[in-house]
């Protein structure tokens, strides 16, 4: 059998999660693995995990399976990386949080119904504006933005990138990492 690689060129959406030591320069090393292959990073979140000193990166990109594998192994090779995983869209739950600053006039035009329909809630009211908050999939977030924008009520809009929930082994991995001792060995 010839050792020819699978050359599936289908571009899919991937989320790559990376656990790293919280060190200067790790972000640059990770992004360079994408940029040298001309892969655009659609979104990126970095935050500290419940384990002190360990950061978690959540990176969202479109690419092929082969390229995603190469990117993943490139990331795993970074000295400060403790663990990296990749997921396809059917393997994770992704949610965004959005804030919508709207005109108070919305509530004189059936705003309550809008809130119910879009599963949004009011988090601030004052005479000048009202702030709504909505958590949901990207399409749901966009649908509310489009409705408010179309009705001329939207004053300002902002949203987070994807916050991802994936298999529970990540929690176990974190516990295992936390048990490995200090950064420079034991």
């Amino acid at each position: 059998m010839a050792p020819i690689k699978n050359t599936d060129t289908t571009v899919r959406e991937y989320i790559i999660t990376v656990f790293t030591e919280n060190q200067v320069g790790v972000l640059g090393r990770i992004t360079s693995i994408f940029t040298r292959r001309k892969i655009n990073i659609e979104s990126l979140k970095v935050s500290e995990t419940p384990v002190k000193g360990i950061s978690m990166f959540t990176i969202h990109a479109f690419t092929t399976e082969d390229m995603a594998c190469r990117i993943l192994s490139g990331i795993e090779r970074i000295i400060e990386v403790l663990r990296a995983d990749k997921y396809r869209t059917d393997e994770f739950t992704a949610q965004q949080i959005a804030l919508y600053k709207v005109s108070p006039e919305l509530f004189r035009k059936g705003g309550d119904a809008c809130l119910r329909e879009h599963n949004a809630r009011v988090i601030e009211i004052n005479p000048a504006y009202v702030v709504l908050e909505r958590t949901g999939a990207k399409e749901e977030i966009d649908a509310l933005r489009d409705y408010l924008s179309g009705s001329g009520m939207l004053m300002q809009f902002t949203h987070s990138e994807n916050i991802v929930l994936h298999d529970a082994s990540v929690e176990n991995a974190l516990n295992e990492i936390a048990g490995r001792g200090s950064y420079l060995g034991d």
Partner: peptide, 13 residues
Amino acid sequence: IDPVEIDKNVRTD
């Protein structure tokens, strides 16, 4: 020794 090289260019059995 470097897992990056596995299956990078040729498929490994």
